[in-house]
Design a protein around this nucleic acid. Structure first.
Lengths: 210, 210, 210, 210
DNA sequence: AATGAATGAGCCTTCATTCAT
DNA sequence: GATGAATGAAGGCTCATTCAT
């Protein structure tokens, strides 16, 4: 066990991460606007002004939180899309990836869901719009391909279906508690069995699938 | 001091309703906290202070908006539940009622969805908690009865299903535009065909139903 | 004596002017940066926040103060230049006009002299640069014409002379007190007799002039 | 505890002088109040806190800068006054000494001119008042003696003349650039030819003098 | 000598609210 | 019913300063 780290003196990037975690939790719980910088500082055991040694502004904090989430999710989706799966499997993978993200970065997801819309109007958060478009393409593409390839019902309104799926998935960030009664995998399975078996063209009774 | 009966174009309760409509629209668009009393007044063509002739406080405004919505929805659900329908038909009717409510009182619904949680912690808004509990009983009851009566799959996690349904339905208030491409009935039909045919025990291919 | 004015209720533009006068006095005495909004409010008998009913920001206050001064001085100089005077008389008139301005708007002039330079770097105060350039043209033009027309010595470094004159004139705003021992006219006379009789080509002993 | 005599590239008093030079430059450019300790540190290539190893406070820095200037100038003036010159030559020598000081310690002079007034109200800077009084005595003495001895015009308002001279001379610190188009000697000559030939009693045309 | 991190006071500004008219 | 003006409590942020390492 090499003792390279001086005890007590937490290195800079480490501290930032800790503080961001605290901030994310508070933002998620009370909303961005309703969260005071003082509250974050309290929770972190310091004074409000001290936060400004680490971050430029309150805005910079959400920015960093959201950017990290959006990046990671974008990469997750990319990996799914590059896997060359069929439409049904793609949807399954996207759902699984999403719930996994919620499991690991719940506060960030909750913030994203609540605040993205009105933050996106500021130039600084323009990347949120790009991300939203990208996510939409991922889902919509899978749904439309599914219809074309007869994996999904041909009377499916894909635009509407996309919205329903998106809303349900992200809303889960509001009630999901890591270590609670449902694991991400369980949620994924239940969710897919609900949604997919309503979407999928099928011949046999649905509970023989999956 | 002259006649009291000056013929006024807008008698008091009328004006209140107008102002509340304006306020609801602004609250829905920008969020309760982010909405300034001045903004509402601007939109209504008056000065901020003048609003206090009509309402006790900003809080009183959301209160009135939310209470009206919650009352109306509660009555709608009651009507559905008293109709003595089967579980599947009950779910259908609850969904239809919900989307109808969104169609008629979109801003109120949007406010409810975004703000209910954190407002509910204040005593003044305790009725929101009761309402939430009531709505949950309505949905959960229908779902559980459906499982018991074999209308819905027996491996259904009703608690999870309830959350998914609730979230999707209310989230629609964020993107639904009255007079837009989808009528409430269309949305209801599509939504039910998605969700129900995934929930319902069925023997025949799903597109022969509904 | 017509009683159109309701007693007590000072009309809006009046109040602005009063408050600006107070602000100008404080800015001049302590410097723009060192002046707190609270101090201005104190001096005006109100709370800091109340100032924002009348003005957008502290910056907006100096802006209004400086813009008014710069406009008025610009017009004064224009009037002088349009009068078609000889170079010596032009210089005399510019000096007289400047000291008159100091007499009437001493705080504004003092602020201009102390703060113009660093405020001018902000886009909002770009007009200060234009004004400076305009004033320079007025003085430099008169000096150069004076040299060309042999009213001023031909070994005069006009660029240097301009700076000396400008600095002395405006610096007077720092020590001049209206109602003090020197009237603006006295100051003008003394100043001109000092500066001009050093600049002017002359044959007879200088104390026979002016 | 090892040897005290580590050969250091920059011994303490040297480093202080360097840092003070940096500080003076920044104070002169942006004003004392507007200058942050961090800015000085940046310019010096260190962190804000590190400055406190060398100096007690930001105030201590200006103090040291101003005290040095005031001392040096005081000595310069003393030397001039002890030389036993006539009033005109004394004025010439004071001007020359002043511009020389500006050439060598421009930032300090600029700070003195801009900040002395409001700093002087603090006990710590009381010596600035003494210095001002001393400088005034030097100039005023020379001017009055000149009037008495008929070297200067008898209608001269010496109090006013003193202010004009003082203001112009120090204001030069704002625009003078060492190594620029004008040498201190040139400026001195031009300035004296402007001012003196307006002040001096003379019989012959002024451009035959000096 | 210098760094990293934090403090605490104070600043500009916003905003819900009040109230005399 | 509405206006104009003001209040007072925060809120985000800056900055000189401190101190252990």
């Amino acid at each position: 066990m090499p003792t390279k780290k001086k005890p007590q003196a937490t290195p800079t990037p480490e501290r930032r991460r800790e503080l961001l975690a605290v901030a994310a939790e508070v933002f998620a719980a009370r909303g961005y606007n309703a969260t005071t910088v003082r509250r974050i500082a309290d929770e972190a055991g310091m004074l409000a002004g001290s936060l400004y040694y680490h971050f430029d502004s309150k805005e910079a904090m959400v920015d960093e939180i959201l950017a990290a989430f959006v990046d990671e999710l974008g990469q997750g989706y990319d990996t799914v899309l590059r896997a060359g799966l069929g439409p049904r499997e793609t949807v399954e993978a996207l759902v699984a990836e999403s719930f996994r993200e919620i499991d690991r970065h719940r506060p960030a997801v909750a913030i994203y869901q609540k605040e993205a819309q009105h933050l996106a109007s500021q130039p600084r958060f323009a990347y949120l719009l790009e991300a939203q478009a990208k996510f939409e393409r991922a889902w919509l593409g899978a749904l439309e391909r599914g219809v074309a390839e007869k994996a999904f019902r041909d009377d499916l309104d894909t635009a509407l279906a996309y919205r329903f799926v998106r809303d349900t998935v992200w809303a889960a960030a509001s009630w999901y508690r890591p270590g609670g009664p449902h694991s991400p995998e369980q949620i994924t399975r239940q969710y897919l069995s609900m949604v997919l078996d309503g979407i999928a063209v099928r011949a046999a009774p649905p509970h023989e699938r999956l």
